[in-house]
Structure formats: structure tokens, C-alpha cells
Nucleic acid binder design. Structure first.
Lengths: 334, 334
DNA sequence: AAGATCTGTGACATCGATTACCTTTCGGTC
DNA sequence: GACCGAAAGGTAATCGATGTCACAGATCTT
């Protein structure tokens, strides 16, 4: 009933060959006679043999697994990215292991180290640390997402945070706003830093002054964003529009505007979110699809793994397209 | 610089012992002399040795990994559950591998099979198939979440879908509603089936008739829920309230109500979602925290793995608490 | 004082596959 | 007819750790 465990040697015995030949069949080695191959395949089917992935990995020195490392798996953005990569990986027969950094550079190092020790074939990582030199000389394909590699030449799938932010701010300026608040995460995160830089650049390009008091770039949590929004609107000279630099912040800003009944304040958010379209007014967003990012990352990873490129193929930087989705909140006039 | 690869035998050599003794130190075997242990530990530190998890797993026949199998990793509910389990697992030094079923029973079988072949120590699974007998006789700890095991005695962390739905419907009836629509997923999913049963039971208990026309139990996608909501409200005898049986449906129902400006229709949703509190009116929900479910599942899993229970400890059914969070939408009168 | 019981340790087999390196067979060449 | 090369397949080592078992010396027993 429960065939306890079938090993390759059992298959070989059943087929009347050596394990080596059975192994050849398993790995598609062409140097096997037609009928020998057939006998081995029959034995495999009959015994319902499946190779032991652990043993194989130990011997081969590489495991058919891809690792995914992100800030938090619960984060909707990273959850979508992960889901997409898992789909592709499953289709190729690879296992997916996940790990979160909690945004700690130290933990990033620990989990990456763990994955590498497990000889994963490839890793997709949304890095936290400032320097990734320690990953050099790895015999493992790495693709960065969301943030770019420093001190390391690997593929990266990114969005153009800087231009995205400029587009958002330009949109608001075009609709007549001059006092536009910035609500975002700490700018020492690469992504946040670039978005803030884009915000600033667009003001400068438009010949407008920046009121530093309207910049709330210290919102790590949803609640912070809500609180800072209230503070901004309480000012004697409140903003007429808000540029919200990431999804978490949107989750704080939008509710705050609602509870204050200040839906007259224009809003453009960086990153789409599930309910954005159903709020009243619906939220105009700069969309960067996590599914697409996941797909692009997976594609890049498997391409490298397939070895179709020469190994010398230089690191590539892929920009996932961004586009502004006008829904109402961003088109309000002051 | 990059110490290519340090094996246990290198450590042993450096410490002047056999690999077996080094292994003893590694595994905390008490039968090692004090100074031998010290020497081995020094060698480990000096060579920066880390054991190879694959080799260890192969030999031991079990991998320090927990598998998580859910409908979709991108689903916010499962993403939170997964994130929580990963946190706990990381703290215990275990790796986490994930796989999605896409709600296909066949795929469920395939991914579970894959995990088992990899000799994972434990699995947390949100099952899809109707019978899990094929998992019997496994040397692997399994914990079910969200749906209960059939033909198999394993631990399960569940919510009381039936009572939750009754609570929701009772709440609406108490506020004067008689025509309450049901919008939910297909009832052949255990969870959905129970919620629908709860809906029906509460009507019966209140001595009210059920209008089958108000039951839209065929919404597998967000878009379906939106469409069905519009249909329901277009009826000559529309409902005055909606009970929304899962989060995905809420994502469809709430926007639909908004876009129709029908925020006079009462709404209670099963499952909290990020923006629920910020909609206008805020959405009353039956909350079942995915974080809590993840924690409970992880706790149960690691408890079993620790072997503190006798192996004969009977399967336990754990109910994660549910509670109604009134926020406005559920308290509207007809 | 001979046996019994612990300690501490190492040699060697083992987990289940793959790789390096042979051997054999056979057809074709010159 | 000796030689070469390709095809087909086998033997044994190996990946890196742990389990089995044997054994020497120290410490008790009675």
C-alpha cells in the first residue's frame, strides 16, 4: 500500500541496470539505449518512483528552490509579488522559500545567508541594507526588486520612483495646486528618498518654492500618516493637495481625509490599493503593478538560471512601467 | 577571504578530534569531555563553520522547514497568516516554504506531495480538497487552517463560520432589517457553506422567511460581487441590507454601493479589511484576525514538533475568536 | 580482584542521488 | 587484421553530516 520508500537503486534493480544508468535516464542523458531507457521508465512508473530532492541537491550542490526575501510577507505589495513568482516557479517545478527582513539590514543578512547555505538556485530580494557587497562571488543568481543593488552587479527590477513622483506632483500643479504636502516614509529608504527627490525636483522645475513645513517624510506606520495628515490640515496655511508617497501612507491619509470630511483636498497616491477606486472621491494613483514586477523578476531569474545568456551577460536594470490613473481625487482643484 | 566551504571534518581536524566528536558537540551531546568540547567550539568559531542543512536533512530524514499551503499567497488574508507563521518559524530557526493551490484539489495534492518529499518537519495547510485521507500515515506534522480536515485526525485552527454568520445576520435583524441579501463565494467551499448555513439558520430562528432571490452565493471574484450587488439593488423589491460573506466579496460590494451612492444600504462583512474603517460609512465587520490564526497555527505546529505531547495526543480543534466590530454600516436602519 | 558500568572517542557505514573514470562492444578504416 | 572512436553501461568515490558499534580507560560493586 504505502510503498515505504523507493530509491533509485530499486528502480535500477527492477529494470536490471545499474543505478548510474537509471540516473542517466532520470537526467535525460542521451547515451542510453532506447530499450534500456524504456525499461527504466517502466520501472519508474511501476514503482511510482520520485527522486529525493534533498539527496539530489546535496550532491549537485544546488537546490531547485528560489528564495524570496522581502520586508514583510503580509504587506500587500510584497504578497502580490511573491504570489506571482511562486506561480512561475511552480510551473517550472521549483520550490519557493520565503523570508522577511522586517526592514532590518542585519536580518536581511541572516536570511540571505540561510538561503545561500541551503544552496538555493536563485534569490529575489527587496533589499534593506545599504551595501550588498557581501553578496559578491556568490554562485547563486540574484535579482533585486524595488531597490537597487549597491556594490554588486546583479539584475534589478525597479520602478522609476523619481519620475513617478514628478508625474504625480506635476499632475497636481497642473490642476492649480501650489501648496502640496508630501506624506511618506523615511527618506533613507531608497525608494522613499527618490520619491521625495522627485517631489522637490518638480517644484523646482515649475519655478515654485517648497514649503518644508509641508513635508512629512517620517511616516513609517499607517497611523503616523494619519496623524501627520491631521497636523498638516490644522495649520494656518494648510495644503490644498497631498502627494502620498506609498501605499501604507495612503491607508492612513485617505481615512484621515474622510474622517475630517476634507474630501476637498486633492490626493495623488504612489501605488494602487484595493479600495482606491471605491473611495469617494476615488483616489488617483501612480500605479506600479506588483504582479508585473513579480513576473519580470521571475522571468529574469529563470532566464539566468536557464543559462541562455552567457554567464558574462551584464547585469540588467529593468524598469517596470508606471502610469498615472486619474480617478477623481487628483483632479480636484484648490 | 571567502572561506570556500568549511566542513565538519575541517573543524574536527582543527580541533584534533574525529568528525563524530565534532558532530557530538554540534548536537549538544553531553558525552563529550569539557575541554574537547571547548576545542571544537573554538575551531567552529575560528573557521566560521556552519553546518550544511541539506546534508543534515538528508541524513536525519527530516528538514528543518515548515511548508505553508494556501489558496493564493497574494490573498491578503493568507498573506497575513503566512507572514505570522514565518515570524515564528524564523525565531525558531526554521525555513518556510510556500505553495499555492489556486483552489485546485489536484494542485493541492501535488504541492503537498512535493513538500512531503522534501521531508518538511511540518505543514500548515488551508485545504481545498474534500477528503484528506491520502495524508494519513505521514511522518509529518500537519495543521489545518480555515477549513477542517476530513478523513484525517490532525490539529486545525478554525473560525466558527456558522456562528459568525448568525451573529452578523442577527445584528442586521436587530436593527430592523427583514430583507437581507447574502453575497458570498460558492457554498461548496466549506467556509462559504457554513456561512450561508448560518445566514439561513438565523432567519429561521427569528421566524423570518428567506427570499432565495436575495442569495447571491456564486461570487468567486471581486467583480462578481460587484455585479451581483448591482443586480440585487435593481430589483423591484431590493434588500435593505447586505451580509457579505468574505473579504473578496466586500471589495466588490462596498465599491458597488459607493458608486451607486446607495450608502443607505446596511452592510456587515465577514472579515476585516484594510480600508473598512475609512469608508463612509465605515464598514461593520465580523473580525477574524489572520494574524491570530497564523499564531495559533504556528503554536500548535511547534508544540507538536517539540514532542512535548505524547505522540498519541489527540488532534485538537482550535477556534479563533470572532467578534463583531460595529462601525456604522451595520447599524443603519432600513 | 574480577566483573560491571560509565565516559569519552573513533572507524566506518549510511542517507539517496550524481560524477569521475573506466570497460566493453561493435562498426568502420586503411 | 589491427586500430580508432563512439556508444552503452558499470564501479567506486563523493556530497556533508549523523547513526551504529566497538573499545579503552576510569570508577564502582560485592
Amino acid at each position: 500500500m504505502t510503498a515505504r520508500k523507493v530509491r533509485l537503486s530499486d528502480v535500477a534493480a527492477a529494470a536490471g541496470t545499474s543505478t548510474k544508468t537509471a540516473s542517466r535516464v532520470l537526467n535525460g542523458d542521451p547515451r542510453v539505449a532506447r530499450d534500456t531507457r524504456a525499461r527504466v521508465e517502466a520501472a519508474i512508473a511501476e514503482l511510482n518512483y520520485r527522486p529525493d530532492p534533498l539527496a539530489r541537491s546535496l550532491r549537485k550542490g544546488t537546490d531547485e528552490t528560489v528564495g524570496i526575501v522581502v520586508d514583510s510577507i503580509a504587506d500587500p505589495f510584497f504578497a502580490s509579488v511573491t504570489g506571482e513568482i511562486e506561480k512561475v516557479a511552480f510551473a517550472k517545478g521549483l520550490t519557493v522559500t520565503v523570508a522577511s527582513t522586517g526592514r532590518s539590514a542585519e536580518r536581511e543578512r541572516v536570511v540571505l545567508d540561510g538561503l545561500i547555505r541551503r544552496k538555493v538556485a536563485g534569490i529575489v530580494v527587496a533589499p534593506v541594507s545599504r551595501n550588498h557587497g557581501y553578496l559578491n562571488g556568490l554562485s547563486c543568481v540574484v535579482v533585486f526588486i524595488d531597490r537597487s543593488p549597491v556594490g554588486l552587479a546583479v539584475d534589478a527590477v525597479l520602478v522609476d520612483d523619481y519620475q513617478g513622483a514628478r508625474t504625480a506632483v506635476r499632475h497636481l500643479i497642473k490642476h492649480g495646486h501650489r501648496r502640496i504636502a508630501y506624506v511618506g516614509d523615511l527618506p533613507d529608504l531608497e525608494t522613499s528618498g527618490k520619491r521625495l527627490a522627485g517631489y522637490r525636483a518638480e517644484f523646482t522645475a515649475a519655478g515654485l518654492d517648497i514649503d518644508e513645513e509641508l513635508i512629512a517624510a517620517d511616516c513609517a506606520e499607517i497611523a503616523d500618516a494619519g496623524r501627520r495628515t491631521r497636523e498638516l490640515l490644522r495649520r494656518p496655511d494648510p495644503p490644498t493637495a497631498i502627494f502620498c508617497a506609498n501605499t501604507s501612507c495612503s491607508m492612513g491619509v485617505a481615512p484621515a481625509l474622510h474622517s475630517l470630511a476634507r474630501t476637498d483636498v486633492a490626493l495623488v497616491a504612489f501605488g494602487d490599493f484595493l479600495m482606491a477606486a471605491s473611495l469617494e472621491p476615488a483616489v488617483t494613483v501612480i500605479d506600479h503593478s506588483p504582479e508585473l514586477i513579480g513576473q519580470l523578476a521571475a522571468e529574469r531569474l529563470f532566464h539566468r538560471l536557464s543559462g541562455l545568456d552567457g554567464p558574462a551577460e551584464p547585469a540588467r536594470r529593468i524598469e517596470a512601467p508606471l502610469h498615472l490613473v486619474p480617478r477623481g481625487s487628483g483632479e480636484l482643484m484648490p
